[in-house]
């Protein structure tokens, strides 16, 4: 019996068989994945900027090394994700072009500023915490290269959240000024973090097709609730408060109730009116433009030297021990 390619494709998905780059796939599936993976990659790369702000101001050598390693990891995550998207036939340069021209979006959370040192802790604990909640299920997403990239990302991401909490933990045990920093950062990052999960389920612009294709498996509200429940407990250890007077435990639902999210602010930031949209994009464009001569030179050099590479290629050539 003959079944259509589309049906075969859906059968594979239903049987949890991963889709690989050369397999047949509906154009819409390819299109959606390119958009989602590249936006995810852009988020990692733009996400380097707010934290990168504090690398040169980190208050101890240990913190400096941790932060540097963490921001570097974000670059790595961006790279893994761009590579996954490239298996679908789009080049990294094209994706950059979409980012720089403003056509491709990235996570709005990175359009908020880092104003004091505790922001570094708050980003690790809250922003990365929210991200992990979304990312862990993506390790089982239907497209093989995306799922594999996410496995790598998630492995590295758990260090990020832990270091974030520990950074705030130390501040919360410190001087009055340090406690103030800690609370200030939590106050500013809490609501944008709740927005990271996206609009409420009944108001979301994108179709359920992605659920059917198992690009994604949990609803925004379900993940958001899980996040609130987790953080509402963890913050007690810090002796800090979440900036929400409506936050309280609900015996009936066995969840925390929380206040109304300002969706107008969310859409404003998505549209480009956040506190740092322009700076973030300008910084990325500038890095790209200033790097053009470097990339060209390396290409030119490679063309001149194609024959001289022999000895470099021995697999054991680089000492990887530390």
């Amino acid at each position: 019996m003959q079944i259509s390619l589309e049906e075969q494709f859906q059968q594979k998905i239903d049987q949890e068989i991963k889709i690989e780059p050369k397999d047949w796939m509906p154009e819409k599936y390819r299109h959606t994945l390119i958009r989602q993976i590249s936006q995810h990659a852009h988020s990692e790369v733009v996400g380097m900027l707010p934290e990168g702000n504090w690398i040169t101001r980190a208050p101890s050598l240990k913190r400096k090394a941790i932060l540097l390693a963490k921001v570097q990891d974000e670059a790595g995550h961006g790279l893994y994700l761009y590579s996954a998207a490239e298996t679908l036939g789009i080049s990294r340069d094209e994706m950059y072009e979409q980012l720089h021209s403003g056509r491709a979006k990235y996570s709005s959370i990175f359009n908020y500023p880092t104003l004091n040192w505790a922001d570094i802790g708050a980003i690790g604990w809250l922003v990365d915490g929210a991200a992990i909640m979304n990312q862990v299920p993506l390790c089982r997403t239907s497209f093989g290269p995306y799922a594999r990239a996410m496995v790598r990302v998630c492995k590295e991401e758990s260090f990020h959240q832990r270091q974030g909490f520990e950074c705030l933990w130390v501040l919360s045990k410190g001087t009055e000024e340090q406690k103030k920093m800690c609370q200030d950062a939590i106050n500013r990052w809490w609501w944008p973090c709740l927005m990271m999960f996206g609009p409420k389920d009944d108001e979301s612009p994108n179709t359920m097709q992605n659920m059917q294709w198992k690009i994604k498996r949990f609803t925004n509200d379900a993940l958001r609730q899980k996040f609130v429940d987790m953080i509402a407990e963890q913050i007690k250890l810090l002796g800090m408060k979440l900036p929400d007077p409506d936050l309280k435990w609900n015996e009936a639902t066995a969840h925390y109730d929380y206040g109304k999210i300002n969706w107008d602010e969310f859409w404003q930031v998505v549209q480009g009116n956040g506190p740092c949209n322009k700076e973030r994009l300008a910084a990325r464009k500038n890095a790209w433009d200033e790097g053009a001569w470097v990339r060209e030179a390396a290409t030119a050099h490679a063309e001149k030297n194609q024959i001289k590479i022999s000895s470099m290629l021995h697999p054991n050539d680089i000492n990887l021990g530390s």
Partner: peptide, 22 residues
Amino acid sequence: LICRFFYGDYGEEKNNTTNLPQ
């Protein structure tokens, strides 16, 4: 099928669909 907003998918500028790969 209900509408949802997916993590990592932040929508596109209006009137400007993402180019399919060249």
